[in-house]
Each structure stands twice: as C-alpha cells, then as structure tokens.
Nucleic acid binder design. Structure first.
Length: 415
RNA sequence: CGGGGUAUCGUAUAGUGGUAGUAUGCUUGCUUUGGGAGCAUGUGGUCUAGGUUCGAUUCCUAGUACCCCGACCA
C-alpha cells in the first residue's frame, strides 16, 4: 500500500506510555489507547495481529483443531452449576443484567459454555476426541492493568478445549499441543527465549504448563534449567525445586512473560455440567478435558519487548505488517513507482513510502520505527547506477546494492 | 484491594494568586532533499464540580482519569 494514504502517522516525540511495547506501537501508529488497559488496533497493528492469528490458526488446524466462535455474552447458569459464578471464585468478572434483571457475564474464559455446547453435539465414543478452538474477546476486570498490551482488560485469546475419551488419549494430545506451541513461538520469532515452564495444576492435576518468554518486562518469576531449556514457575518452586527433566538443582531465577498456557482439566467441568458420552461398552463416561490459551496481543507485545532497538520495532519476517518497505527518496520517484507496480503484480506484500513532501531523513527514521524487515531505497543515486539499495532492519540496515534487472529475483528470494 | 503520585495545545514539557510559554505536529508561502532540513506565517491548551479570594491554571475539598509500589492474576 502507499504510505501517503495510510491514515495513521508516526509521532516524533514518543508518547508517555507504559511499557516499551505500547510506547513503540503507539508512536508508530499501530495501536491507540482508549483507556487504561484497553487498546484499539489500527491498520498496521491489525495487519500484525492478523498474521499472528494466522500462524496460531495454522498450527492449531495442523493438530486437528476445529475453529468456531462462541458468544461474548454468557449465560450465568452453567457457571452457577460449576460454582464459578461467584466473585469469590473469579474476581475479574465483568457482569451485567438484561432489562428483565437476568444476570449475564462478559466472557473471561469459556470452559463452561464450551462444555455446555458439547452436550448438544456429542453422545458416542465415536464423536471423540474433539479439539475445538476460537479467537475470542475476553474481558477481565483487572485491578491493575499495566505494561501496555501485556496485561489488558479486554483482549483476544486463542482458547482451545480438548475432549478425549480417556486419560491416555488426553495425554497424547497434550504433548502434541506442546509441540504446536513451540512451533508457534519460534515462528513468532521468540522461540529461543520461550521456555516450557511447569506451573501449578490447580485442583485437577499435578502440573499445568506455561510458555514463558524470558524478559525483564515480565510479571512472572521462573527458575530456568539452562541445560534442558525448561523452567519452573516460582509458584511451585517449593514443591518442585529441581529441574523436572534432569533433576539439576542449580536453577537460574529470571523474569518472564507468560505467552501461553496449557492446562489439564480432568473431568471436573464435564461432571458438574453433565457432559457424557457412551463408551464401547454402553456405559456413560465423562470426557477428559484440557484447555490451551495464547493471547495474540500479548504475543505481539512480547515480540517487541524482546526484539526492538533504539530506533524502533524490529519485526520478525512472519509477523511483519508488510514484507517490504520501499522508500522513494529524491530523484527516485519514477523508479519507485515502477518497482512498486511490478512487485504488486507479483503479489508481493509491500508498503511504499511515496510521500512527496517528506524529507529523506524522516522517511528513514519512520522506516526504522515501523520495523519492516526488508527495506528498499530508490533514489537519484540508484537510478544513475541502475541499482536498488536493499537492507535488513534486523541487521542495522547495512546496505547492499542489487542490479535493477536482478531486483525481482533477489526480493522474491529474500522476502 | 492497601499505599503513594500526577492532571497545562494532537504529542512531549515549562511556569505563575493578576494577558500561559517552549519544542514538536498541523496550515500557508518560499527555499530545501541520504538520517527526523531552514526562514516566515497561521492554528491550538490549564480534567470536572465546589470553596477561599477583588481576582484561581496556581491554594483548599470532593469527584474523575491516569501512573507507580504492593497484593491479586487458568
């Protein structure tokens, strides 16, 4: 797209925002803060958000997930049955009432509605296992929102729920999700920093597992085994003071961001909500459940926290809003225009800085801030040499000159 | 939820019991063009409600919003 038509603008003076993630995202025009802990996604931000969603969706589909979308307004009844409607159980509820005084809740999670839904759709062992997921808005009345997109009161979460015939089948799928999550975080560009972490399993199992990205901005404290690339959350360090994998005891304390969570649920929800299936022997049984969450917005913030530099954002390839940022500097207008059209025709995803009254310095500074991985500069100089200038945001924009006739091939190989 | 702080153009910030300033942005004009270019020009602001006072953006009270520390956080 042409940058001259992009309605958001960058700000020269960084806004006073909480957390480097929100500061850079606001400064570069990706998001807008509505109020504490509530952010809107603008065109650039939505492009990134959707790419993150796309990666998660691919990985969830690859392990047999079926996407659906439940409502945000929730009936109180199932929650009363499981004993979770009370503010004592879940204190971050946003609740409201219909005109006729009926109580409803704004979704903060979906175990109850999902379990309840399946009562209408499964009845035989042949219907299981079932893996259903959604990207859905959660509302959580956090006492204290903070750190930009890291802890917000309204956010989209990918939540997958698994329903298995028995514990063995559940355990097998649980391991597949672990793998899928590793794939997701490495595709998001934060795989090296993100560790499988043992955490509290609540009342239904010994452990749950979190995916913790090591980062000072994080709110969690974890203890890392450097050899196994595995960690233990502080909340269970008394119970599990050694590496669960190799039993080493010299674990390193680190701050980390919880970018994903997987949780065995057992049959608690099925039991309390009356979800059963008939097994091969004709007996009614409760499916064994699990829940698996990732917040794309928090993931976006984590990417920035881990990968930014002094000049701005440095997007990894797979999540960048555009693959290429084409800058037209003085004397490069017609070359840039031609190259832009050529790349568009090849279906290449490109942001073209065609602004005619913007100085070269400003364009370069904006490009650094926005953080698109591959940059092309076209100017009088490249025109005279019949080249294009190419550089990588992640490599400090070290410049390389490619002959104009080789440009398309080069870009297709490097995008 | 406990404790603390802040509130001034779109953004970032000074300052004052008596006409509110700077930078940046934005308008217009001229000159510029490889790391946020120059000159000129115009535009735009004291959170809300009370109180004290001749006079409050400034002091006081309350409200609201925002931020920080802690607690909390499937």
């Amino acid at each position: 797209m042409k940058q001259s038509t992009l309605f958001t603008k960058t700000q020269k003076t960084p806004p006073k925002e909480d957390g480097i993630n929100a500061q850079l995202l606001v400064q570069a025009g990706f998001i807008h803060k509505e109020m504490a802990g509530v952010y809107s996604f603008l065109p650039l931000g939505l492009l990134v958000f959707n790419r993150i969603v796309g990666i998660i969706r691919e990985e969830m589909n690859a392990i047999g997930g079926q996407e659906l979308e439940l409502a945000s307004l929730q009936d109180a009844e199932p929650w009363k049955k499981t004993g979770r409607w009370s503010d004592k159980e879940i204190d971050i509820w946003f609740k409201t009432k219909l005109k006729n005084e009926t109580e409803v809740g704004l979704a903060n999670t979906h175990e109850e509605p999902m379990t309840n839904l399946l009562r209408h759709h499964i009845s035989s062992w042949r219907d299981l296992p079932l893996y259903i997921y959604q990207f859905q808005t959660k509302f959580r009345n956090e006492l204290r929102a903070r750190n930009g997109l890291l802890r917000t009161r309204e956010f989209v979460m990918k939540d997958l729920y698994s329903f298995s015939k028995n514990k063995e089948e559940h355990d097998q799928f649980y391991e597949k999700v672990k793998e899928a999550y590793h794939n997701i975080f490495s595709r998001l560009g934060i795989g090296d920093s993100t560790l499988l972490t043992f955490a509290s399993g609540g009342s239904f199992s010994e452990y749950s597992h979190e995916f913790q990205a090591i980062c000072e901005a994080g709110e969690d404290t974890i203890y890392v085994c450097d050899e196994c690339h595995i960690a233990v959350n502080k909340e269970i360090i008394e119970k599990q003071s050694t590496c669960p994998e190799c039993s080493k005891s010299n674990l390193n304390e680190k701050r980390a961001i919880e970018v994903g969570n997987i949780f065995p649920l057992g049959t608690r929800f099925a039991d309390t909500l009356g979800l059963t299936f008939t097994d091969e022997n004709g007996e009614a049984k409760a499916p064994v459940m699990g829940s698996y969450g990732i917040g794309p917005g928090r993931a976006m913030a984590t990417i920035i926290e881990l990968l930014h530099d002094k000049k701005g954002i440095v997007w990894p390839k797979e999540v960048a809003p555009f693959g290429i940022h084409l800058l037209s500097l003085m004397g490069g207008e017609s070359d840039a225009e031609n190259l832009y059209k050529e790349l568009l025709n090849k279906g290449i995803d490109i942001l073209y800085d065609d602004r005619s009254e913007t100085s070269a310095g400003e364009k370069l500074a904006d490009a650094d801030l926005i953080g698109i991985p591959l940059r092309i500069v076209v100017s009088a100089k490249t025109h005279n040499e019949d080249t294009i200038e190419v550089s990588m945001r992640a490599k400090e924009n070290e410049q390389e000159y490619i002959k104009r006739k080789d440009a398309l091939k080069f870009l297709q190989e490097n995008i």
